[in-house]
Design a protein around this nucleic acid. Structure first.
Lengths: 196, 196
DNA sequence: TTGAGCGATCCAGTATTATATATCAAAGCC
DNA sequence: GGCTTTGATATATAATACTGGATCGCTCAA
């Protein structure tokens, strides 16, 4: 059953995953069952309009009707907002590294309790994960994550964390406001090894 | 059954009516039955996502997912395109007058055959119909329509028609490019449209 | 008056969605 | 190795979307 709603559903799934919400969590917020969501996302079932709306609303998305003519403009706007000019890439090599970093932050939250800095950090990582990065940028991130890992044990980590968060955020902002047409160099995949 | 999809459906209906497509015509293009569409539009039935997409696609609309944060910007964009800054109003007092005018033009097309001027005229009327107008503006339109009615019989109406069409279009353009924030005087009825 | 097109409504039957619940393998964490 | 979470899947049942008609009241034009 290949439908035209495919891409919409894919988009919903992407944002769900990008914001780290599980199907179960979403099912509660949206008032649907987990199995339902699973079937919708995997294309085994076509949702009703209202189910779909419930689902997307719970993800902070709005379903909108746009004249075909304006569709490109709108989707441009949307993309510019979420990933300021660079291509979304899923399942890329550095995913693993970011995944680890994200888990690390989560763990720190669990251990030391939530803090504004940790929250910022988590969000920034989530952002960077979806962005194409040059080797140089990736290198910087690697370092920062290493520092994070290094400080995780200490109870006096707070100032370090703040510093790391600020650094990452600076990077994020520079990416976000880069000249829109400038083709990013795109990292080369050198993953897999050197890691501490 | 008050659903959250209400406004989307209303929007679809509005564009259908604004572009003068009947439920039956739409049902053919969209591959649904007329009774189905009727029930959907009147809220007696909740469409499936794919039915809704079929329906809107046939109206040259795209269903899009937009981050809530951007929703205002997008709907601003959309409204600016269709009705440059003024509120859509449906079922307002001057509808009848416009309805007559529209039919009149249609009839003229039938009798004298289509012409570029008549086409422009029809489109302009359709536009003006959806716009809030001051008394003054309405007065002008009334006059022009009267002139149109007066000339409809003549086979030598062409130059008059062209003139009328130009006048209406001038009005339309002045409305379209009016300062966006300037609150239109708005004839009588103050019915804000804020979607629910 | 007659006829055509419009949208709303009804009806019977089928197909599909949606729920509730439970299980399962895979991956991550302890 | 155990414990937890995640997403996919199964089954049985209730709910409803959707089709295919047909009809009705209405408005408008011939």
């Amino acid at each position: 059953m290949a439908y035209q709603s495919e891409s919409l559903i894919a988009q919903a799934r992407e944002t769900r995953e990008a914001s780290g919400v599980s199907q179960r969590a979403l099912s509660e917020r949206a008032g649907l069952t987990q199995s339902h969501i699973s079937q919708i996302e995997s294309g085994k079932m076509e949702p009703g309009l209202s189910s779909f709306i419930d689902m997307t609303r719970a993800l902070d998305l709005e379903v909108m009707l746009v004249p075909k003519k304006l569709a490109p403009a709108v989707s441009g706007l949307v993309k510019a907002q979420s990933t300021p000019d660079m291509h979304i890439h899923t399942g890329q090599p550095n995913d693993k590294r970011f995944g680890r970093a994200e888990r690390l932050v989560k763990k720190m939250k669990r251990v030391y309790g939530s803090s504004a800095d940790l929250d910022r950090l988590e969000e920034t990582i989530r952002f960077l994960r979806r962005v194409r990065l040059s080797d140089q940028e990736m290198q910087l991130i690697r370092e920062l994550i290493a520092r994070l890992e290094h400080h995780k044990v200490s109870a006096q980590a707070a100032p370090f964390i703040r510093d790391i968060a600020q650094n990452l955020e600076r990077l994020r902002n520079s990416l976000a406001h880069a000249a829109p047409s400038e083709p990013r160099p795109a990292y080369s995949l050198d993953d897999e090894d050197a890691d501490a």
